[in-house]
């Protein structure tokens, strides 16, 4: 068990090292710190001197080491555009993205679990077939189309909801700008989180249905029936618990998809989160910001995946981690 966790941590470190190297290369190849510092109005000699002073002529590995050293202290460079440390810029946008993802996940859970379970329990029911067909349809509609048409109808045509931005936010303990505690913020949240939920829900409906149907075929469920346990208890305690374990692992893997989708959603709704920040940084060629975003998202991925793996193996030691033979 301990060796398993140890190996996972080692691997996580390794992946982080690769990510940091990639973003170092991006900064190294694309950014020009000298020009950023002094502009174009310097002589070649002055440039040379400055480059020497900054250590830009050192071997790459030494530069990378220095980059890592700074990164560990939380210094990942300064944004060209915002003129602030990149890590601060990203941190200020983090609450918006987290709240959006959280709202979407709540919607997904509320929709996908009942529908997926129903479709698994009554596979022949006309309603289940409809659920399945609609989830296939939902899977086939790209998120940006959903987002734009939701925005078009609800915000422009019918004028029911705001079309962009995050609206009013309230400060929570001075640390977190939250839009969850006032009407305006919640209204702004509705359309973006609905769009995200619209594309994520079908994935989870299908997943829950497939896993649950497998579980319902198992001997321990048949045995539960033989014990005379009530149907709701069999479905929601015996079966659902076993269904959710694999669903949670796959859910952890879907995190990447979620982040990618937040980039799309945020661009459409001008939601001031990390995704929009990233796309803006790409347009503005704000290299330090791009590479910091990379590291930031990389860390989130690696930490979440490692956590999911470890938690899963703790909750359920009898199951081998898939692909880990």
């Amino acid at each position: 068990m301990l060796s398993f966790i140890g190996r996972r941590l080692l691997q996580a470190m390794f992946v982080l090292l690769i990510i940091s190297f990639v973003s170092f290369m991006i900064q190294d190849k694309m950014g020009d710190p000298v020009r950023q510092m002094v502009g174009l109005s310097v002589t070649l000699e002055q440039r040379e001197a400055l480059q020497q002073e900054l250590g830009l002529n050192d071997p790459m590995l030494i530069q990378y080491g220095r980059f890592l050293g700074r990164a560990i202290q939380g210094d990942l460079g300064t944004s060209y555009y915002y003129k602030e440390p990149t890590i601060d810029v990203i941190a200020s946008r983090l609450p918006a993205t987290l709240e959006l993802s959280f709202a979407a996940l709540v919607l997904v859970v509320l929709l996908a679990i009942p529908l997926g379970v129903f479709a698994a329990i009554h596979p022949k029911n006309i309603l289940s077939r409809a659920v399945l067909l609609f989830s296939t349809l939902g899977l086939s509609v790209p998120i940006f189309i959903v987002a734009v048409f939701l925005m078009y109808f609800f915000a422009i045509e019918w004028g029911l909801l705001p079309s962009f931005g995050r609206g009013e936010t309230t400060s929570v303990f001075g640390l977190w700008q939250s839009g969850l505690f006032n009407r305006d913020g919640l209204q702004h949240l509705l359309l973006p989180s609905l769009s995200l939920a619209f594309v994520l829900t079908p994935i989870f409906i299908r997943l829950i249905r497939a896993e649950m149907m497998d579980v319902l075929q198992s001997d321990y469920i048949r045995y539960a029936w033989a014990k005379g346990i009530s149907a709701p208890r069999i479905y929601f305690i015996h079966a659902l618990k076993n269904t959710m374990l694999p669903v949670i692992t796959v859910g952890g893997i879907q995190l990447g998809t979620l982040v990618a989708y937040t980039i799309l959603t945020e661009s459409i709704f001008q939601w001031p989160g990390m995704g929009l920040l990233f796309m803006d940084a790409v347009t503005r060629v704000d290299v330090p910001l791009i590479s910091t975003y990379l590291i930031f998202v990389g860390v989130i991925f690696v930490v979440t995946n490692t956590l999911v793996d470890v938690v899963y193996s703790l909750v359920n030691p009898r199951v081998r981690i898939p692909g880990y033979s």
Binding site: L255, G256, A260, M279, V282, I290, F301
Partner: peptide
């Protein structure tokens, strides 16, 4: 685990900048 969309967005964005 990094998801195709995410990788594609990042790689293409970097190339576009480059």
């Amino acid at each position: 685990s990094f998801s195709t969309m995410m990788v594609a967005i990042v790689v293409l964005a970097v190339f576009q900048t480059l």
